[in-house]
Amino acid sequence: MKFRIALAAAATLVLAACGSSQDASTEAEADTVEVDADAALEGVDAAAVADDGAMAEDEASEEASAAEAQQIQEAGDNAADTAAAAMDAMAEDSAN
């Protein structure tokens, strides 16, 4: 009997905790933030501006990416060679 009462009380608390959290303070905070952001952007010109240097950076990063990919490939090859040598050494040790 006590178990049923405890279970009913727990279920009631769980359902009460699932209630809505919409109160006036939460809504007021969002409005305040939006108003401040809008006020800060009033004098900003939203026109797009061409950036001539943007493409140069992309080309340089592509060249760096190719060099980096080569270094990664070499490091992977070296790791594979080291692992193969270690396996050979272990095979020799177990054979003796």
Score class of each variant (00 low, 15 high):
residue 1 M to W: 04
residue 1 M to A: 08
residue 2 K to Y: 01
residue 4 R to F: 02
residue 5 I to R: 01
residue 6 A to E: 01
residue 6 A to Y: 03
residue 8 A to W: 06
residue 8 A to V: 00
residue 8 A to P: 07
residue 8 A to R: 07
residue 10 A to M: 09
residue 10 A to N: 01
residue 11 A to L: 15
residue 12 T to Q: 00
residue 13 L to E: 03
residue 13 L to P: 04
residue 14 V to W: 02
residue 15 L to C: 14
residue 15 L to D: 02
residue 15 L to M: 14
residue 16 A to P: 01
residue 17 A to P: 03
residue 17 A to I: 06
residue 18 C to S: 13
residue 18 C to T: 08
residue 19 G to Q: 03
residue 19 G to K: 08
residue 21 S to N: 13
residue 21 S to D: 07
residue 22 Q to V: 06
residue 22 Q to G: 01
residue 23 D to T: 09
residue 23 D to G: 08
residue 24 A to L: 11
residue 24 A to K: 12
residue 24 A to Q: 15
residue 24 A to Y: 09
residue 24 A to N: 13
residue 25 S to N: 11
residue 25 S to K: 13
residue 26 T to V: 12
residue 28 A to S: 11
residue 28 A to Y: 04
residue 29 E to P: 00
residue 30 A to S: 12
residue 30 A to N: 11
residue 30 A to P: 05
residue 33 V to P: 02
residue 33 V to Q: 10
residue 38 D to M: 10
residue 40 A to F: 07
residue 41 L to H: 05
residue 43 G to W: 01
residue 43 G to T: 04
residue 44 V to D: 04
residue 45 D to P: 00
residue 46 A to T: 01
residue 47 A to K: 07
residue 47 A to C: 02
residue 47 A to F: 05
residue 47 A to Y: 03
residue 47 A to N: 11
residue 49 V to M: 01
residue 50 A to I: 06
residue 50 A to N: 04
residue 50 A to Q: 00
residue 51 D to Q: 06
residue 51 D to P: 01
residue 51 D to T: 00
residue 51 D to M: 05
residue 52 D to Q: 08
residue 54 A to N: 06
residue 57 E to T: 09
residue 58 D to E: 12
residue 59 E to A: 12
residue 60 A to S: 12
residue 60 A to F: 05
residue 61 S to M: 14
residue 61 S to Q: 14
residue 62 E to F: 06
residue 64 A to P: 02
residue 64 A to D: 12
residue 65 S to T: 08
residue 66 A to I: 12
residue 66 A to C: 01
residue 69 A to C: 02
residue 69 A to L: 13
residue 70 Q to L: 14
residue 70 Q to R: 13
residue 70 Q to G: 12
residue 72 I to C: 05
residue 73 Q to N: 11
residue 73 Q to E: 15
residue 73 Q to A: 15
residue 75 A to E: 15
residue 76 G to T: 10
residue 76 G to I: 08
residue 79 A to Q: 08
residue 79 A to N: 09
residue 80 A to G: 11
residue 81 D to Q: 13
residue 83 A to H: 04
residue 83 A to Y: 01
residue 83 A to T: 10
residue 84 A to C: 04
residue 84 A to E: 15
residue 85 A to W: 07
residue 86 A to T: 07
residue 86 A to F: 06
residue 87 M to S: 15
residue 87 M to T: 14
residue 88 D to R: 07
residue 88 D to G: 03
residue 89 A to W: 08
residue 90 M to D: 11
residue 90 M to E: 12
residue 92 E to K: 12
residue 92 E to H: 07
residue 92 E to G: 03
residue 93 D to N: 10
residue 93 D to M: 12
residue 93 D to Y: 10
residue 94 S to Q: 14
residue 96 N to D: 14
